[in-house]
Every structure is written in structure tokens, then in C-alpha cells.
């Protein structure tokens, strides 16, 4: 990370870039990694709703899994996932497995 020069910093403790915390990749905090088993996912949206990091991405489209058609797909952005396990704990079909980080 390169630090700004002192004259480049706005006066008054102002942060001018919304959502700039995204530069801070919190994925490194993780000791357990959630894996979504797409074939067990019933697309209920619960993991997406409860993730404190907002790091479960919902994609709209056409997805065929084992002959079943779905309109949505859920994927985890591991750049930010802290491995809290809330998604795995709340998933009604136990489609999310927590595995130790390699």
C-alpha cells in the first residue's frame, strides 16, 4: 500500500472515497473456509441475507444443476469472507461446508 503525501490529504479528517474499505482484503482473517455445494443449494437467499460482510454474491441467470433449472447462483467472494460460518450455520439444507484453510 502506498501512503498519500501530506498535502494530498483533505483537511478535517475527511474520507472522499465511499466504500474504500474494499482495499482492505479481510479474507486473510479466515481459518475456516465456507464452500457452497451448488447441488445442495435450494436458492433460498438466507446465506446472502445474513452474511455480515455482504460477501456472498447473488448472480441472476440460468443455471442448470443436476437437471434442475435455477434462476440464481450464490458464490462467496473469498477476498472478504472472514470465515465466521454464519452462512453454513443458517443454511437450511446444510449446503455450505466449513473446511480448514490450507
Amino acid at each position: 500500500m502506498s501512503l498519500p503525501k501530506v498535502h494530498e490529504i483533505p483537511i478535517g479528517g475527511i474520507i472522499t472515497e465511499p466504500g474504500s474499505s474494499r482495499r482492505n482484503l479481510t479474507g486473510g482473517w479466515r481459518s475456516l473456509k465456507p464452500i457452497i455445494h451448488d447441488d445442495r443449494c435450494i436458492r433460498c437467499r438466507i446465506c446472502w441475507m445474513y452474511c455480515p460482510e455482504g460477501t456472498i454474491k447473488e448472480t441472476k441467470g440460468e443455471f442448470v444443476v443436476k437437471g434442475r433449472k435455477y434462476q440464481y447462483k450464490y458464490e462467496i467472494d473469498y477476498n472478504y469472507c472472514k470465515g465466521c460460518g454464519i452462512c453454513a450455520h443458517e443454511c437450511p439444507t446444510k449446503a455450505i461446508e466449513m473446511v480448514p484453510e490450507a
Binding site: R22, T55, D77
Partner: peptide, 8 residues
């Protein structure tokens, strides 16, 4: 945004 430092 993601990347905040709240605990897991």
C-alpha cells in the same frame, strides 16, 4: 462495503 474491520 466489505473490507470493514468488524469481528468475524
Amino acid at each position: 462495503a466489505s473490507g470493514h474491520r468488524a469481528c468475524a
